[in-house]
Nucleic acid binder design. Structure first.
Lengths: 185, 185
DNA sequence: CAGATATGTCAATATGACTGACATAAACTT
DNA sequence: AAGTTTATGTCAGTCATATTGACATATCTG
């Protein structure tokens, strides 16, 4: 198959390089976590990619419909904050989702300039399908975890997120930190 | 600031929707983990993005130079497997990194068609800089974690990765599962 | 009414991905 | 030795998603 002997990781061409931190004072790189995050996220979003392709959608559509479904009445401006893209970028994707009736707009109550976004039944079904695949993966990964271990995973992920300028949606998510667990359902 | 009262999460327009699973038998969606993964990964790669911009590079360059640095002597074909892109896509990015001397090629020993890839000192410095930022974030997130909790985080991330067709690099990373921790340095 | 704000849209551009086709050199097969 | 396969590189065209800049419209606020 190949001439590379993977058992002999210390001398084979593909052995992971083990090295001390370059600068004194710098922390030893967490190569393990860095690479695991890369592969885990790649496969995590890969679940959804296959389904989306059948719908003629991409990841951008998934992100939009997901957050609209999860936070009904989300304003366009909020969505731009969360996704960190420009309104021109959002425009095309959002227009498709509106045209194909995955999302509907409603003028704001107190401010009629606002376009509040809501997922239709069609949109909710798509989100549920995608979230189901990802949930299955998460549940498989967490199978056999003690309650404290599963809790540590959530705490780690929260700790990885920037706190400096949380947008509105992120604020809601991070509020669960101090609150009791049941608040998050 | 805004008319939305975030404290009143059960009635405000931006309250996260709480709902039962759509289909009987389907697992309750792990909205929390799904969204935390999104934000955590967004900020995790964001660290590197800023630095890369100053070099005129993108995320694609980071992925290439990272894996070349970590697995010296990586073949072009291995890189394609890991990154799951076509050789045409890799071509442009790899050419830039070669032209600007972040990477060098060496003909394979036993098979001279192969172009084994190695990071130069310049390339290693860039990778170290980027990994340093990400390591700082990881260490902040893991601060105060008990050994078992930190271990659970790694176990979770490994569990999120597809096992069916691991490429060569992934095999090396996943080998650490059964092996002792020191094997991973 | 004047100005600011929320949204939408047109145009041009960049990045990073894709498919398909073809070229070269080296290895393997018969 | 000839023929086939493999590893890599490259040309050409396309697509999805992002960007900046400019401008239009409706609506809110002072």
């Amino acid at each position: 198959m190949t001439d590379i002997n993977f058992k002999d990781r210390s001398s084979g061409p593909l052995a992971a390089a083990a090295e001390p931190p370059a600068e004194p004072g710098a922390a030893t790189p967490r190569w393990d976590i860095i690479e695991l995050l890369f592969f885990a996220y790649r496969d995590f979003v890969g679940d959804a990619d296959h389904v989306l392709e059948a719908f003629g959608f991409g990841r951008a559509h998934h992100r939009v419909i997901h957050f609209v479904h999860r936070y009904p009445g989300l304003k366009v401006a909020d969505l731009l904050d969360v996704l960190r893209i420009t309104k021109q970028s959002l425009g095309r994707v959002l227009k498709q989702l509106l045209d194909e009736a995955y999302i509907v707009q409603k003028a704001g109550d107190s401010d009629r300039r606002q376009r509040l976004l809501f997922a239709t039944a069609k949109g909710e079904a798509l989100v549920a399908k995608l979230a189901g695949l990802q949930t299955d993966r998460i549940n498989r990964a967490l199978a056999g975890f003690a309650p404290g271990e599963a809790e540590a995973v959530g705490r780690f992920l929260r700790g990885m997120i920037d706190r400096d300028d949380p947008d509105k949606v992120l604020e809601i998510i991070l509020q669960a930190d101090g609150a009791s667990a049941k608040d998050r359902r």
